[in-house]
Design a binder for these strands. Structure first.
Length: 492
RNA sequence: GGCGCUAUCGUCUAGGGGUCUAGGACGGGUGGUUCUCAGCCAUCAAACCGGGGUUCGAAUCCCCGUAGCGCUACCA
């Protein structure tokens, strides 16, 4: 029997980091085993489900490059793939369970249930359904059905305590006693299935073989196993991956900043970097290899190597992984991504031509951990005349002879026969030699004058990128300011 | 409270009885290299939650404790 797995998000928000990792593990397991990856939308909670969320989740999946074999937009032979469209299946299974005495109608109202729960808690008891509707006679049921609102359907759990256990791929054997469970609701008063019931019916009818999900579902598993048993169906294999935590050790949430995968794209993280980092969060191939492309993961991923401990989401490692992927991109691809990112933020530099763009991205070089870093590192061409940072100026103003040297450099550049990197470098170094100072004595002031910073990409590329006239202008402007403000200026 | 899951450097992890004076990576420190920064190279510091067992021998197996997290709805 071939492997069939599913990722089943409920459309109540965007695709968050935890969901993305669950999706990734399902996807990778399917690819690694030659199985099928199904995407199913669990939208039975009408209150919270929205179409916008469905779209956001699909967009997140696409951004990551996780293509589903069956599901929304692509269809498949086990559809529909939205739970709200699978109502007939739930009705059918519910009717069967009720007919076989494995489920019964419950007429208790939510208010009554809530009141009893409160009382139980007050008495120090566990809040569990007391089973009062389980023993109603057929006549009573018929009478109450005729008079009141539609009842909920409850699962008639086994009366005798029994062990409900499974061999979890990531945790080994997990077991519960059925006595801790109560007669939970299968179908709500509005006729829609609850999560546990819909989940089982869907996994069953979609022929899902492996259920890979977050460990927040671990305590739902015994309920679901009981439903499979009542239905006389085979139980799928379970694998519960751990939660992803924030730096404070709490479950990752909005409080921790960006949690939707696409928000990381806005932060300049590549899908490749996100995928790689997510894979590493709870999984390791051998403890040594840690850089993978999606294609490589598809070959080497093994569910057995998923680690059961909760993992803390570390942004610094994410950025490092991202930097590695950025570095491995083909140059043309890297240029396209950096310029595309900047263009989306109002800095469309692409009109300056291929040579300029390539030189620009080469100049940024290894300084980018994320695409967003280009906004900062490349600021010297993004702004008309970058302001000089205070501490950079403080240093420049204390440098003897800086002003005159900047003017001299400007003149050299203006008089240059050809505006090329080698020519700019020769002119700059030549000037330093003639002046009898180290190249740094010309370069450092020039860097501050042209970029406004003490740290920036190589000065020759910077000058070339800024352009001859604008560069000379910035050099002269800084020189004039030096002349006016430096205690070392002649005549000061 | 009950039930469950988890427990190796700050973080992600390797380790599945001896090869562990516990390895790798991120981050951090130091040195080198380049016009600065970044990068790269070298190098340093940094962990088996506690207590009992089992065993000739435990980071590895078992039990207890502790801590963190999850669930405890007619949410998913």
């Amino acid at each position: 029997m071939s492997v069939r797995v599913r990722f089943a998000p409920s459309p109540t928000g965007f695709l968050h980091v935890g969901g993305a990792r669950t999706a990734l593990y399902n996807y990778l397991f399917a690819r690694a085993t030659g199985g099928t990856f199904v995407l199913r939308i669990e939208d039975t909670d009408a209150e919270r489900s929205t179409d916008a969320s469905v779209q956001a989740i699909l967009a997140g999946m696409r951004w990551l490059g996780l293509r589903w074999d069956e599901g929304p937009e692509v269809g498949g032979s086990y559809g529909p793939y939205f739970q709200t469209e699978r109502r007939a299946l739930y009705d059918e299974h519910a009717a069967r369970l009720e007919a076989e005495g494995r489920a019964y109608p419950c007429f208790c109202t939510p208010d009554e249930l809530e009141a009893r729960r409160t009382e139980q808690l007050a008495r120090g008891e566990d809040p569990r359904y007391d089973g009062r509707c389980r023993t109603l006679s057929a006549e009573e049921r018929a009478a109450r059905r005729a008079s009141g609102p539609r009842p909920a359907l409850r699962f008639a759990r086994p009366l005798a305590d029994e062990e409900v256990a499974w061999d979890d791929i990531v945790r080994g054997r997990v077991s519960f006693q059925s006595a801790v469970l109560d007669d939970f609701v299968l179908v709500r008063g509005d006729g829609l299935p609850t999560y546990n019931f819909a989940c089982v019916v869907d996994d069953l009818t979609m022929a899902i073989t492996h259920v890979i999900r977050g460990d927040d579902h671990i305590s739902n598993t015994p309920r679901q196993i009981l439903i499979y048993r009542a239905l006389g169906a085979a139980v799928p294999v379970f694998a519960h991956a751990s939660m992803i935590l924030g730096p404070d050790g709490k479950r990752l949430s909005k409080r921790h900043g960006a949690t939707s995968v696409e928000a990381f794209g806005d932060l300049g993280i590549l899908p490749e970097g996100m995928i790689n980092f997510l894979a590493l969060l709870g999984w390791a191939l051998d403890g040594h290899t840690e850089l993978f492309t999606l294609a490589e993961l598809e070959r080497v991923f093994a569910l057995e190597r998923v680690n059961p401990n909760p993992a803390v989401f570390d942004t610094q490692k994410l950025e490092w992984v991202n930097a590695q992927h950025l570095k491995r991109l083909d140059e043309s691809d890297r240029v396209a991504r950096v310029l595309g990112f900047l263009a989306a933020r109002g800095h469309d530099l692409r009109a300056r031509g291929d040579e300029w763009c390539t030189t620009f991205v080469r100049a940024l070089g290894e300084r980018l951990r994320t695409l967003a870093d280009a906004l900062d590192v490349g600021a010297f061409v993004l702004e008309e005349s970058p302001a000089i940072e205070p501490e950079a100026w403080t240093e420049l103003v204390q440098r003897a002879g800086a002003g005159p040297r900047l003017v001299a450099l400007a003149e050299r550049l203006e008089g240059l026969g050809e505006w090329t990197l080698p020519a700019i470098e020769a002119a700059t170094r030549g000037l330093a030699t003639e002046l009898g100072v180290k190249a740094g004595e010309v370069i450092a002031p020039a860097r501050v004058a042209v970029t406004g910073r003490k740290a920036a990409p190589g000065i020759f590329e910077v000058l070339w990128l800024v352009g001859r006239a604008p560069a000379a202008k910035r050099l002269r402007a800084a020189a004039a300011r030096w002349q006016a403000e430096s205690p070392l200026a002649a005549g000061a």
